[in-house]
């Protein structure tokens, strides 16, 4: 074990996988300079054949990822900020998510798209979107959202080895988050949620960046005798519904925290699934803690008002635990 920052864990995962599999190529804008640090040193280590800076042309690079994967490469394609998924969206939605299906499974598309997603740093509306709901709705894209450095490493390795297009979304501003990362080989299968903290009173499903405030909230409320079970789905596609439902059956209560706009958020989807499959176990209405249906504003006071924080989560937990059936 060693303490590492999330971005460092990601960097190691890419390095180790590129060493292991010479078919991997990585490209994107300024991956050599590496704005976030996840691709730092890779150009030096693997050279320009395998690590390439591209011009600013997201519509091309997302399509190139599909073409190179179809032609036999394993591809890591860096989209930088989640919002630039939109400028690269055509090939993501119309090619990456569909080409295998339309061609009757003739090919695999082993692509890992990297992007930072979400807000919290006054980067304003065009650099702060949480893009997972948009991607999840495409159907043909797997989605990973790590909640800790160790998970980031293990999940990124699994994503790179996966034979399907995977979006690996690292929470913006959480790259520096430290955590224990095992020294030995670590590959965490996609589609396995993890219980970050057990508790009997309420299930708190927290996605990506929301894991940390959820745990903080759980720790704070434990002092008052409210036992919160924090479940981190880790991947949204595929979704480990069984672990979530089993927890809901134990606690009888569910809150989902998601740094996405409320409408069609992953929180909404998970809430709907729980209502459908665990209705009998519920002792209170399911609650979602999400971003209101607005842009992410620039000024810190405005941004704090819309992003879910510990206080928002705590209020939801209190309301859920204290809920009584109206007579």
């Amino acid at each position: 074990m060693a303490r590492k920052r999330m971005i460092q864990a990601m960097n190691e995962a890419i390095l180790e996988e590129m060493e292991r599999d010479p078919s991997i190529v990585l490209f994107g804008e300024d991956v050599k300079a590496s704005l976030f640090g996840d691709t730092r040193g890779l150009w030096k280590r693997f050279g320009p054949d395998r690590v390439r800076d591209t011009p600013i042309c997201e519509a091309l690079i997302s399509g190139m990822a599909v073409g190179a994967a179809a032609a036999g490469r394993r591809v890591i394609c860096h989209m930088m900020f989640g919002n630039f998924v939109y400028t690269g969206m055509d090939a993501i939605a119309n090619q990456a998510a569909k080409l295998r299906y339309m061609t009757n499974g003739q090919i695999t598309l082993p692509i890992t798209f990297l992007a930072v997603s979400g807000g919290g740093r006054s980067a304003a509306a065009q650099h702060s979107d949480a893009v997972h709901p948009v991607l999840a709705n495409l159907g043909g894209i797997k989605i990973v959202m790590p909640g800790s450095p160790a998970d980031a490493k293990g999940l990124l390795k699994a994503a790179i080895r996966d034979d399907d297009p995977v979006f690996f979304l690292q929470a913006a501003g959480r790259g520096g988050e430290p955590g224990e990362v095992p020294d030995e080989e670590l590959v965490i299968p996609l589609g396995e949620a993890c219980i970050r903290r057990p508790g009997r009173d309420v299930t708190l499903v927290a996605i990506g960046a929301m894991v940390r405030p959820a745990i903080k909230c759980a720790e704070a409320l434990a002092g008052e005798g409210i036992e919160v079970e924090v479940v981190d789905p880790r991947t949204l596609v595929p979704l480990d519904l069984e672990t979530i439902l089993a927890s809901v059956r134990r606690t009888g209560r569910l809150i989902v925290v998601d740094e996405a706009r409320d409408t069609c958020s992953s929180a909404s989807h998970i809430a709907a699934l729980a209502a459908e499959h665990a209705f009998d176990a519920l002792r209170a209405p399911i609650r979602r803690v999400t971003v209101p249906d607005c842009c992410i504003p620039y000024a810190p006071v405005l941004e704090r008002a819309v992003l879910p924080g510990v206080e928002h989560i705590e209020a939801a937990v209190r309301a859920t635990v204290g809920w009584r059936r109206p007579r």
Partner: peptide
């Protein structure tokens, strides 16, 4: 009192 009320910032 920002030209965009603080909603946009430098880039907007």
């Amino acid at each position: 009192d920002g030209i965009c009320g603080g909603f946009g910032g430098s880039m907007h």
